[in-house]
């Protein structure tokens, strides 16, 4: 069914720290690796070594330059994947029921054997989280590594999304955002976690932690008070030269 559940038992999702992300794209690579080898159709590439490469990715890292009214600009790396919205518009537009939101944990998934590849869900998503695989003709999206997080064949520390497991700067956190005591909920509360495009009314589960305020630093020259002040007016020979040249040059 492509109607959304009234509520979900859990809200599994990601918290992404824009303060610590270094923009290394390791999460992009690990995501592509895991999701090509496991759940559903592989993430294909078209012309990967040619002149016009393109391919399917479930997670992409943008970089933004943000210019405050005063002071230097900041460079902020910005990973973006499915936000597993509570009010997911991609689910309700699906004509076949392939797109659905799970009641037990709130993960938004695509049942690829039902997907006709019409692309309407990608149009309905404001975040560009869904990409049609050009080889398989089905819609691909972040599964929150549903085949890792419940997988008892994996060691316990690996039972989290590949992007979170691989992040070298700890900028990605995974957990239940419906539980106010969970680590991720506390991070969101402490750091003022925010929604992307709240005006779209999608109620994203994933939250972004804004960059911490920069330290301010006033430029102080500690030697200045010890130096003789520079003579503002020239006198003697230099003064005569200054006046004479000024007359000749008309200044």
């Amino acid at each position: 069914m492509t109607t959304l559940p009234a509520s979900t038992e859990k809200k599994l999702g990601l918290v992404i720290d824009l303060d610590t992300c270094v923009g290394c794209h390791a999460c992009v690579v690990s995501c592509k690796g895991w999701n090509t080898e496991n759940y559903g159709a592989p993430l294909s590439d078209q012309d990967p070594y040619g002149a016009d490469p393109s391919g399917t990715f479930l997670n992409r890292v943008h970089s933004y330059e943000v210019q405050p009214t005063e002071g230097p600009a900041q460079l902020i790396h910005f990973p973006k994947s499915c936000l597993h919205c509570d009010d997911a518009p991609c689910v309700t537009v699906c004509p076949t029921g392939a797109s659905y939101k799970r009641v037990e944990d709130g993960i938004v998934l695509v049942n690829e054997t039902d997907c006709i590849g019409c692309g309407l869900c990608a149009w309905a998503c404001p975040y560009g989280a869904r990409e049609m695989d050009q080889a398989a003709g089905v819609m691909k999206k972040c599964t929150l590594c549903v085949d890792r997080i419940y997988n008892e064949n994996l060691p316990e520390e690996d039972r989290q999304p590949a992007c979170v497991r691989t992040c070298p700067s700890n900028a990605r956190h995974f957990g239940d955002l419906s539980d106010p005591d969970s680590e991720v909920s506390q991070l969101v509360a402490e750091r003022g976690g925010m929604d992307l495009m709240p005006e779209q009314g999608t109620k994203p589960v994933n939250k972004y932690l804004p960059p911490r305020p920069k330290d301010t630093w006033e430029e102080v020259d500690i030697l200045a008070p010890l130096l003789e002040p520079v003579a503002p007016e020239a006198d003697g020979l230099l003064g005569w030269l200054d006046r004479t040249l000024g007359k000749v040059g008309g200044k």
């Binding site: 824009l18 794209h25 330059e65 943000v66 404001p126 972004y208």
Partner: peptide
């Protein structure tokens, strides 16, 4: 609003993901 970074300043796309 798309990036949530408006509180800091004006946002410019610096580098594409691909």
């Amino acid at each position: 609003t798309a990036t949530g970074l408006g509180a800091i300043g004006t946002v410019r796309h610096f580098e594409a993901p691909h």
